[in-house]
Design a protein around this nucleic acid. Structure first.
Length: 819
RNA sequence: GCGUCCGUGGCCCAACCGGCAGAGGCGCCGGCUUGAGGAGCCGGAGGCUGCGGGUUCGAAUCCCGCCGGGCGCACCA
């Protein structure tokens, strides 16, 4: 019976080769192809080495969906590519004294081979690598378009600097004061950098979330928090001795009468401008102190308030009161206007500051709570306005409306909206990325490289030349840097920074629709045909990185008339992590599990099945809790059913002649698995496949036997359903059942409704909520009949002493009698 | 601290709209098979659904409060 042995490695060798020849997963390109289209995408990998367990999970999940769509008859686009620019390649190049491309493309080949073995249903013909000049030239082209529209600009300011990676970072890449990539503490530096004006799209990024009805709620919440919209008012304060008034932003203009001091961000230009000569030494000392703090120290919530008096006073516009102006680091220079009015009675931060420096506290909202000056607890809640002139007696909402009206009439303020979101800092002082296509000309300024000169390719640099020096390595490539200005022809220099690699990934999903296109980043016709992406699968860690940036890019491209939708990803699934023993796998813990070794030991199918069966796709998988060996056992069992059924008969049997009991199981399974796959409960779907396998096994051993058409029907059904998760076993089983390759071209089975109806159902009869009897009844029994039947039951009557008070009938499944 | 999701046999996990707590897997125990082991096949045990209250004829499911955990936010005025 060795013929029915399940030998995963042999099947892999056999079918991987055949699939490569058959290409069953190529997206249909024929414009006359009438099949409905679906676009399935997994977040493309960074080629850091071979594929790891995390990849194994994402791609196994995505493949269930893609393969299901193939079987449902869709024209499916399921592409793969590599996010191949980035720091690790550069670091490897320095260490090995070679070009970053060497390491990068070697890893890509390794991963591509592993993907092929892993049996993912990719359309390999659309493969792309973001580090190819053919790809990154379009980054440059897009950058130029953004620049022309004022969406890419350069400005100076304090930026996040990673001392380990020796480059600046976007706000999104700083997590709790640490570099998102390497974990080093980020410091702040004053630098001139390129930005994308994502803040122009803040409101739309928020509004269009209405379209994202198939995104996980927590992901939307993260983006909402990140964008951080708030409503409030701008209020103008005069500063004694300064001509222009200073604007502050507040969400509580109703508390304006309670402002007892004024705070300017210590690092804001305004502080430096208005500090008096007398206070300057103290201010400068303070500012230097603050500059030394890391983000982690600065943002510690339990940190004591610090600050320094600037020697000046501001005038409260509503009552003319003189209030002292301080500098402090709890006010941020890049939010609002970098200055605030402080209302210590009703804002905890202001109160902490006031109590520390002995500043007055004035209650203007009566909340019924104790005096903040006494308790140290600010009262930020609602109440009735007091000590506030025309606002007295009003509630919060009325007071805000009224004060805004008054301020507006006097030209001293207006209602406004603010966002926490900052512009996207995109320049990086590293080599292995897309050169920014700008030429700096002493006469013409920032001149974009003309489209016909794109791509600006990277100069050939390797090894030590790439070592981080705090400025881009490109600056050292003099032949490359020095160019003629495209406008005036004079001597000029290229910008030496490269783009954040998140630029690359912000539009790659559009390129897949026409990867060879040379007239633009993508063929708008093909994007219309395939887009937007029906299902995207990837990690939640990209919530306010890649997923936010891609949404922004899509909107800009929409405004440019290049795409016909405003949201790129219709449905989003965040898979969980693969962990081991309750902890993330890591080298330092020594608890890593190697995907390749798991596959060597258990086979691709068993590893994939384990990933899918472990639990809901968004849950973490603890590899210590699951059993690839058990998966392999199940696959062997399923395989034997297919092989035995195949050996006992031929395709085309009349299923209707088969064993009715098994047929019912098969069709109930089809019905349930279809629903389970469509609702993404893949783990439960696998459980149903296991049951079907058991039922078929029983039919072979102790029922009608392997030759019964119902057994064949069950086996064929099993093969097709199993192919979503275990393509090798399924494909071989399909062949044993007498079908030609590939199972990817088979049709998803349909349940016969006549086989789903049950002749009888078990009705539970309860007395006072306790089960006392079970009745076999017809599914369409009437309530009255069921009630009579239940009351006639001896077992029920044994628990009744007289007439029941109430009888609840839920035909046909339940009767509850209340005695 | 605030918000949010979650807590079901020893373990991973099911349970449609509130209606018999258990589908599937791991582990454990037993039987058949085998020279033995493994594999295979068949069967079994195992629970106050985190705790306390409430709504209901009926609660794992809905509501409130605790306890424990995950995630997010946390000087953004």
């Amino acid at each position: 019976m060795s013929d029915e042995q399940y030998d995963p490695q042999a099947l892999q060798a056999k079918w991987q080769q055949r699939w490569e020849r058959l290409e069953p997963y190529r997206a249909g390109e024929d414009p006359a192809d009438e099949r409905p289209r679906r676009y399935m995408l997994d977040m493309f990998p960074y080629p850091s080495g071979d594929l790891h367990m995390g990849h194994g999970e994402v791609f196994a999940i995505g493949d269930v969906v893609a393969r299901y769509w193939f079987l449902r008859g869709y024209n499916v686009l399921h592409p793969i590519g590599w996010d191949s620019f980035g720091l690790p390649a550069e670091n490897a190049a320095i260490k090995r004294n070679e070009h970053p491309a060497t390491w990068t493309y070697a890893n890509i080949e390794t991963q591509a081979n592993s993907f092929r073995r892993y049996g993912i249903s990719f359309d390999w013909s659309r493969r792309l690598h973001t580090s190819d000049p053919d790809y990154y030239r379009w980054n440059q082209w897009l950058f130029t378009r953004f620049f022309e529209r004022g969406l890419a600009y350069r400005k100076g300011g304090l930026v996040n600097w990673c001392p380990n990676d020796q480059t600046v970072l976007a706000n999104e890449q700083v997590v709790n004061g640490r570099c998102e990539r390497c974990g080093a503490e980020v410091v702040r530096r004053e630098l001139t950098q390129w930005y994308f004006k994502i803040t122009d799209y803040a409101q739309r990024l928020l509004d269009d979330m209405d379209q994202l009805t198939h995104w996980p709620e927590r992901l939307l919440t993260m983006q909402r928090n990140w964008i951080g919209r708030s409503e409030g008012a701008d209020v103008l304060f005069e500063i004694e001795g300064r001509d222009e008034p200073v604007t502050v932003y507040t969400t509580r203009p109703d508390t304006l009468y309670g402002a007892t001091f004024f705070v300017v961000a210590a690092d804001a230009a305004l502080a430096d401008e208005i500090v008096t000569d007398e206070q300057r030494p103290a201010f400068e000392a303070y500012r230097a102190e603050v500059a030394k703090l890391s983000d982690i120290e600065r943002l510690a919530t339990d940190k004591e308030k610090t600050g320094v008096f600037l020697g000046r006073h501001a005038i409260n516009p509503v009552n003319g009161e003189r209030i002292p102006v301080w500098a402090a680091d709890y006010v941020l220079s890049d939010y609002g206007h970098g200055a605030i009015m402080a209302v210590p009675a009703h804002d905890q931060r202001d109160l902490d500051f006031a109590l520390k420096f002995g500043l007055p506290v004035k209650v203007v909202v009566h909340t019924g709570l104790a005096d903040p000056a006494e308790t140290g607890q600010a009262t930020p809640g609602e109440g009735t306005l007091v000590n506030s002139g025309p606002l007295d007696g009003l509630g919060k909402a009325e007071a805000i409306a009224k004060i805004v009206e008054i301020l507006a009439a006097e030209g001293r303020g207006r209602a406004t909206v603010n966002f926490r979101l900052r512009d996207w800092l995109l320049s990086r002082q590293r080599f292995w990325g897309t050169p920014i296509p700008i030429i700096h000309c002493p006469d013409c300024g920032e001149v974009p490289v003309p489209d016909e000169d794109l791509p600006v390719t990277l100069p050939d640099m390797r090894g030590e030349a790439l070592a981080p020096k705090g400025v881009s390595p490109l600056a050292a490539a003099e032949d490359w840097v020095n160019v003629a200005c495209p406008k005036c022809g004079g001597a000029a220099k290229r910008d030496t920074d490269t783009m954040d690699t998140f630029v690359d990934s912000s539009w790659y999903f559009l390129r897949y629709t026409s990867p060879g296109y040379s007239e633009g980043p993508f063929d708008p016709e093909q994007v219309r045909r395939w887009g937007p992406i029906d299902q995207y699968v990837g990690g939640i860690e990209h919530a306010v990185l890649h997923l936010l940036y891609s949404r922004f890019f899509t909107k800009v491209l929409h405004d440019m008339g290049m795409v016909n939708f405003t949201e790129p990803f219709v449905r989003m699934l965040n898979q969980g992590q693969v962990i081991n023993g309750g902890k993330a796998m890591s080298k330092s813990l020594g608890n890593g599990v190697d995907l390749g070794k798991q596959i060597d030991e258990f086979g691709v199918d068993a590893v994939r099945l384990t990933m899918i069966f472990a639990g809901p796709p968004e849950d973490d998988i603890d590899w210590a809790d699951v059993s690839p060996a058990a998966s392999q056992k199940f696959l062997a069992r399923a395989f034997r059913v297919m092989a035995e059924a195949g050996a006992a008969g031929a395709p085309g049997a009349d299923f209707a002649a088969g064993d009715i009991e098994l047929r019912k199981v098969t069709h109930r399974t089809i019905d349930e698995v279809t629903r389970l796959i469509e609702s993404y409960r893949f783990n439960v779907a696998v459980a149903r496949m296991m049951e079907l396998t058991t039922a078929a096994r029983r039919a072979i051993d102790s029922g009608p036997g392997a030759a019964d058409p119902a057994v064949r029907e069950a086996a064929e059904t099993l093969a097709i359903m199993l192919s979503l998760v275990a393509p090798y076993a399924a494909e071989e089983g399909w062949e044993r059942l007498g079908h030609g390759p590939s199972i990817a071209r088979a049709t998803w089975p349909e349940a016969d409704p006549s086989l789903l109806v049950q002749e009888t159902v078990t009705c539970v009869v309860q007395v006072a909520g306790k089960v006392r009897d079970r009745l076999e009844v017809s599914p369409d029994i009437t309530e009255d009949d069921l009630r009579a039947l239940a009351l006639a039951s001896d077992k029920v009557r044994a628990h009744l002493s007289g007439d029941p008070r109430k009888v609840i009938v839920r035909a046909p499944k339940l009767v509850n009698i209340v005695p």
